[in-house]
Design a protein around this nucleic acid. Structure first.
Lengths: 163, 163
DNA sequence: TATTGTTATACTCTATAACTATA
DNA sequence: TATAGTTATAGAGTATAACAATA
């Protein structure tokens, strides 16, 4: 395995992806910091702004141990951005839900994430869908979609339960 | 500013970029962990495997405070992967340099970073250069390069002194 | 006086293990 | 007994501030 593909073009693309990753992270942390949040707190707040989640599921989304989530949610709760609510159907479960202020903060946070959106605005529609298809294939989704096809918007697979 | 570009295609691309970033980070951390290194340690080791650097410059590359680098290099040094050497021209400066074992670890680390390289192998040459040009434009480099041009390799701007 | 690296401190995130309360 | 959440603990990264050595 690992076909040692050291051709210059591939290496350059790998490096560019590294640049994108670095820049994305920077901007994400900066946007979070503007709201006096850490990256992890911003990530959790973003998740909870879409739907309430049990502590355990937050951990799975963050790919970290459940014990860590306790502290992160503690700090969000101390700032009035999140609340813990009992789950009526299973009293072991605590649902973390955003407050109104939490939702508003999450929205402003998302709006300030201009990276990828602003530079993307410089691309044409065709280029954007090209990029979409290439990224999809890189991620192993839609192995059949070909960039030059340009119109195959139905075949999305998951976006569901996740892992 | 921030043209509130909420068209579905752009949003999907932004989400895909988020996926790429998440996956890249995961794989990077996993590769580092295989060598019993943290992400930050692996990053520093990778930098130093290219060239010795003063502590201060490592901090700039990592975009963190110089005081943090002390501990990271301490831990790499304790494992025999890095050494501190005086700079003959300025005795305030300490150069961090990789040992032989450090260089070998850095190489194996790089080789195990198959993400982006392996999935990229599934793309054709044309698709890879397409992706390269789109990523470049996203990053604000080469604003003139157009994907369909395909051959304008002379206009690279920086890659030089960095910030 | 300015710069380099370090130390000291405090906070956050992280994993591990042990605990509780439910199921 | 198994699961959800928590606590306790220890290690690592981070920023801030103060410090020694050198320029």
């Amino acid at each position: 395995m690992a076909p040692r593909s050291t051709d210059p073009l591939t290496l350059e693309v790998v490096e560019l992806i590294g640049d994108v990753v670095a820049r994305y992270y920077e901007e994400y942390e900066a946007a979070a910091a503007e709201h006096a949040l850490t990256g992890a707190q911003a990530r959790v707040l973003g998740l909870l702004s879409l739907e309430p989640l049990p502590m355990r599921r937050i951990a799975k989304r963050l790919k970290c141990e459940p014990s860590n989530v306790t502290g992160i949610v503690d700090r969000l709760e101390a700032r009035g951005l999140v609340e813990r609510r009992p789950d009526p159907s299973d009293r072991r479960i605590k649902l973390a839900v955003t407050t109104d202020e939490g939702r508003s903060t999450a929205r402003r946070l998302r709006d300030s994430l201009d990276f990828a959106r602003e530079p993307l605005a410089g691309l044409t529609d065709v280029e954007r869908s090209l990029l979409r298809d290439l990224l999809r294939r890189m991620l192993g989704m839609d192995p059949d979609t070909r960039p030059d096809t340009g119109s195959n918007p139905g075949t999305r697979a998951d976006t569901g339960t996740g892992s």
